[in-house]
């Protein structure tokens, strides 16, 4: 006679931390509580695409000023130079910041998973226009008991 195996305790649902108001899309997530089942369908929230807001420079009055400047050859040259300088500076800063943040926020987790799951992850992530890392992070956040 064998005793029944202990029943796993109740866990938080993987979408418990996702606000219902966020846009939802069906995606395949791995249920880490059930090692036998490869994957289950749950709803994963994808933050809505940022809405482009009108910057103050888009105001008609500002646009008219810029147009007037561009009409003269000197003005056009100067404004182009300034824009290029600003863009280069901003790009360098963003690169530095991005690298620092990436190093600080992300760590590498090595786990062995079946190739089918990996394939599902890749296709699922591609379909959602996100990365595998993002999907895995979302799953782990949902699974985490804390």
């Amino acid at each position: 006679m064998t005793n029944p195996s202990p029943r796993p305790a109740l866990r938080k649902a993987p979408d418990a931390h996702i606000h219902p108001a966020l846009a939802l899309g069906a995606v395949t997530l791995i249920d880490l509580r059930e090692p036998d089942s490869a994957a289950i369908q749950v709803e994963l929230a994808v933050p809505p695409a940022p809405i482009e807001t009108n910057s103050p420079h888009d105001a008609p009055a500002d646009r008219a000023k810029e147009d007037r400047k561009k009409r003269t050859a000197k003005g056009a040259k100067n404004s182009k130079k300034q824009k290029n300088k600003k863009a280069v500076k901003a790009g360098k800063k963003a690169k530095k910041k991005g690298k620092k943040r990436q190093l600080a926020d992300r760590i590498d987790v090595r786990r062995e998973i079946p190739p089918t799951v990996r394939r599902q992850l890749r296709t699922g992530a591609k379909a959602r226009g996100t990365s595998v890392d993002e999907v895995v992070t979302s799953v782990l956040e949902g699974w985490s008991p804390s």
Binding site: R7, A9, L10, R11, K12, A13, P14, A16
Partner: peptide, 19 residues
């Protein structure tokens, strides 16, 4: 710590007692 959302997601017989 657990809510009806977790219970309905799990849905095992009698699991409500844990929430």
């Amino acid at each position: 710590p657990f809510t009806a959302s977790d219970v309905l997601f799990d849905a095992r017989p009698g699991i409500a007692s844990e929430a």
